[in-house]
Amino acid sequence: MKRSIIIAACGTLLAGMSLGLPPAPAAPPASRPADVTVKGTVRSIRLPEDEPPLPPGPGRETAQLFCGTCHTTRYITIQPPFSRATWQAEITKMRTAFAAPIPSEKDGEILGYLVAVRGAEPKSGG
């Protein structure tokens, strides 16, 4: 039998916190979702899935495949523009530090894509 635990939510308390001053932005309604499942002694949640496609560019499928194996490709799209050297260092770090199985002959294609979508001139990249 499934039953749901309702997690105590404190967000609504924020709404009245203006201390006699001009009103602060209101907090959204506190969520009281039945989103933890307790079955016997097992507590579980289900994480949402939201994986936006990478923006178009040469090498997109290769980047999706090799970068997207271990982590969301949002890690690419949330970055500010970086230099080619910075992006190459990221690819190398993924391979050497995190054991990403990226064949080195794929570097050029992946690097080309990263520079195309989040590239910068060397001076402003870092």
């Binding site: 979702p33 949640i45 982590h71 969301t72």
Partner: peptide, 14 residues
């Protein structure tokens, strides 16, 4: 919004 959470600023999800 993740389970047990309110809406937060999403950086990454996986």
């Amino acid at each position: 919004r993740l389970p047990e959470k309110t809406e937060l600023l999403l950086r990454t999800l996986r």
